[in-house]
């Protein structure tokens, strides 16, 4: 054991216990969601009244929930793609070109991260209202794009900043035009960042409540739907079932993403000429 490891281990062993307790504090409230989604009662009580899957069946049958889910997926996808495209262009501009006022631009674009959602929400509402645009999923999408661009930019900036400019020059030197260089070198290397940005932006949009709440018309996104249901105790367990389902799906998505990432690393195809 190295000297510093020895020093570190001279710390009180209670730290591990603390870590476990802390982890429990984080998990327990969250685990109540799936727990009570199996509860055979519309009311929350501890201990459980019985085990049932009826809430899951009801969830799958709930039309309004399905619609809200579809809306959220739509909004999330469009917002994520748009924010990523905008973020990619901006990140490229900021890392490849010497532009005046780079830090000002960066600060400005990152503002949504530092302004409380409520302020952003009402400001956008004012704008939409002033432009006499009707509130709809489109206004939600717009609001989410504005919210997600700083996230996309942060991810893509860090990915592009470590990019060796000689790689693109080497491609040109070896005979490829600027456009082919982009397709054969820049894009493949930026892809992990692009995927990360898409995922992050999607998650931010999917879970976003307040801005959607202010900007949505009659079509609800999933968080808006959940918000509505939280006031009706009878439909509560269905919402809990939904929460549990979302957790499981998210975990699966992250596992798949990790698997894909490691797959990309192990690529050794020698026959990929012209790729």
């Amino acid at each position: 054991m190295s000297a510093s490891a020895k020093l570190a281990s001279m710390k009180p062993p209670g730290l591990f216990v603390y870590a476990i307790l802390y982890l429990a504090f984080l998990y327990v409230p969250v685990l109540f969601l799936p727990l009570f989604s199996f509860n055979d009662s519309a009311f929350v009580s501890f201990p459980l009244a019985g085990f049932t899957l009826r809430w899951y069946r009801a969830m799958l049958a709930d039309g309004a929930l399905g619609e809200a889910l579809a809306n959220s997926l739509k909004v999330g996808a469009v917002a994520a793609i748009s924010a990523t495209l905008l973020g990619l262009a901006a990140a490229r501009a900021l890392t490849r070109y010497r532009l005046k006022g780079t830090s000002t631009v960066l600060g400005f674009v990152s503002l949504p991260l530092f302004i409380p959602d409520i302020v952003l929400g009402i400001s956008l509402l004012i704008l939409v209202n002033a432009l006499s645009t009707p509130l709809s999923l489109s206004s939600v999408i717009f609001g989410h794009i504005v919210l997600c661009v700083p996230f996309a930019l942060a991810v893509l900036l860090s990915r592009l900043e470590g990019f060796d400019p000689s790689l693109e020059e080497a491609s040109r030197d070896l005979g490829e035009t600027a456009w082919m260089t982009f397709l054969r070198v820049t894009l493949p290397l930026a892809l992990p960042g692009i995927v990360a940005s898409l995922l992050l932006a999607f998650i931010v949009s999917f879970d976003e409540f307040l801005i959607a709440y202010f900007l949505a018309g009659t079509d609800a996104t999933l968080p808006i739907y959940i918000w509505g249901e939280l006031r009706f105790p009878a439909k509560l367990p269905i919402v809990l079932a939904l929460g549990a389902a979302i957790l499981v799906v998210t975990c699966l998505l992250v596992l798949v993403a990790e698997w894909l990432r490691n797959l990309g690393r192990a690529r050794t195809t020698p026959l990929a000429v012209g790729a």
Binding site: P29, V30, L33, D207, I226, W227, V239, G243, I246, L247
Partner: peptide, 13 residues
């Protein structure tokens, strides 16, 4: 991981 659930539902929890 716990924070991959909906924020609304966590508050509700």
């Amino acid at each position: 991981i716990p924070f991959w659930t909906s924020y609304l539902l966590r508050v509700f929890a």
